[in-house]
């Protein structure tokens, strides 16, 4: 099984080399691909100095477009599985095996959940609220219990790769991607996965943006349900 670890990175020059170190040490069986999403800082040159594949996008197209670039790359280079792994250092390379296991058992999308299996994850109240709301709504829509639908720590099997190379949602893609997957009868699984709290740099999600995020994604979910 050829595995591609897709690492979307926007202004992550401080974190990106730690992320690649982590992957080289604890997940050497996969190929790492950094998608530099038009960063304004040194992300591009730092990424290029590391021993991994790098795609530089000419301007910022957003997380959805970045991940999709990685997915298209996976198809062209004949990878079987895509692992989405954040460039900010919050995901842990040692946990990748956990989300890969269900893929070899036939799952198409595997989400690493911060809330399963007694994992502790502290976050602001607003964010937690949003995460819970989405988990409830998505559980209802998909007809199965989901706990961490906004998690960006995922593995995509061949079917998911084919589906998402055609269309992948743009701004806040995690939740919407699941609806799309559900509509196309893909098998979604969730497994417990530990995550780190952010070490360096600032998260792109501020309280005000959290609210915007919620409204926007709810709207997108609604639109996706309406779409045929």
């Amino acid at each position: 099984m050829k595995i591609l670890v897709v690492i979307p990175a926007y202004n992550e020059s401080e974190n990106i080399s730690d992320v690649i170190d982590d992957l080289r040490q604890d997940f050497p069986q996969g190929d790492s691909l950094i998608i530099n999403d038009g960063s304004e800082d040194e992300t591009s040159s730092v990424a290029r100095s590391l021993d991994c594949r790098v795609i530089d996008l000419p301007y910022n197209i957003g997380i959805g477009g970045s991940v999709q670039t990685g997915i298209i790359y996976a198809i062209r280079e004949n990878f079987d599985v895509v692992v989405q792994f954040d460039g900010d250092g919050q995901h842990i390379a040692m946990e990748i095996e956990k989300i890969l296991a269900p893929v070899s058992e036939g799952a198409d999308i595997v989400i690493g959940s911060r809330f399963l299996g007694g994992n502790r994850y502290t976050s602001s109240i607003i964010r937690k609220m949003g995460i819970t709301i989405f988990a409830r709504i998505m559980s209802l829509i998909c007809g199965q219990k989901l706990t961490d639908t906004t998690s960006g720590f995922r593995a995509y099997g061949r079917k998911a790769i084919d589906l998402f190379s055609d269309y992948y949602p743009e701004d806040y893609p995690e939740v919407e991607a699941l609806i799309l997957a559900h509509k196309n009868n893909l098998i979604i699984r969730e497994v417990p996965a530990a995550m780190r709290q952010r070490i360096k740099g600032k998260s792109s999600i501020t309280p005000l943006r959290s609210i915007y995020y919620m409204v926007k994604v709810l709207l997108a979910v609604f639109v996706d349900i309406l779409k045929k």
Partner: peptide
Amino acid sequence: NKKLTQELGLIRE
């Protein structure tokens, strides 16, 4: 535009 940008990135790589 997004498709073009992605293609450009892929080709450069």
